[in-house]
Design a protein around this nucleic acid. Structure first.
Lengths: 149, 149
DNA sequence: ATTTGTGCAAATCGTTTGCATCTGA
DNA sequence: TCAGATGCAAACGATTTGCACAAAT
């Protein structure tokens, strides 16, 4: 077995059911059929940007009957546990990113497609000081692109 | 009279009804009672971050009876006309910013408050090249902050 | 046995739309 | 005049919630 923290952030390592079971348990989440099915969909070793609908549809396709409400609950639980990261791009949809490393996004306005941008390729040279009494928690950079045509 | 383009971006210049009427006309929008009322609420010389609800409530308070649907239509028209800028922070609400200059935002996660950050105080030293066939349209930086307490 | 999770359907919330009616240029 | 704007209510789509049932420790 390898380190879980590492596994989460490496795109090329295939995870086994056991690995995912361990992930959930370490996150303090009980091992339920639904969570395992959703984890299998989400954490397959590649990073994804998904909506609840996507996940629900994927579960259906795998013949795992999971209600949409449970999908939502689970995505939020995974997010609180640090296994997913929420990104807001479009006002009418929540995207969940399986990449929890610090990074940014390209958002293609013509087709709604979202692509990861490694944090290292966006160099932020200076930041203003936050309003008094607050500290910067996270910096989200969205590079909105559109076709040149 | 002063230059309209300038007026839009200067926070300390008070605009008159006539100034706003001109703004609307230059944007190719007919001068209607509702648009004038909403423009008066939005473009009073200070920058604001508002939702349709905010604007609707403000109109009520001024005894200007404007339907919520019209508020939405108008905000979108103003946005297409370049008088407002849409910002997405929270998946469940569209914010409209009366500041259309290039700039960024602080978003306080504890109270949902949004604050402008001048573009000049965020220095982005390098950006990745966009996916082939696309060009970067806009860069949105959201500095998410929370109370230190 | 007790706590935690799940499923369903109904509720909610912001936003959009269809359509009949008005109004500014 | 008449294209464009408005208002209303109904439609919408994503998300959340209440509650009875089921499953995990």
């Amino acid at each position: 077995m390898f380190d879980k923290g590492l596994a989460l952030n490496m795109t090329y390592i295939k995870l086994s059911d056991d690995d995912r079971a361990l992930m959930l348990q370490q996150a303090g989440l009980r091992l339920t059929r639904q969570r395992q099915a959703l984890a299998a969909i989400l954490f397959d070793g590649t990073h994804k940007h998904v909506t609840a609908e996507h996940v629900h549809a994927a579960a259906r396709k795998k013949r795992a009957a999971i209600s949409l409400a449970t999908v939502y609950n689970t995505l939020h639980q995974f997010t609180s546990a640090g296994l997913l990261r929420e990104i807001v791009i479009d006002a009418s949809r929540i995207y969940f990113d399986t990449n929890v490393e610090s990074h940014h996004h390209f958002f293609d306005e013509s087709n709604g497609r979202l692509t990861d941008v490694p944090a290292s390729s966006v160099a932020i040279a200076s930041l203003p000081k936050p309003p008094s009494g607050t500290k910067i928690d996270r910096v989200d950079v969205v590079l909105r692109v559109r076709g040149k045509a």
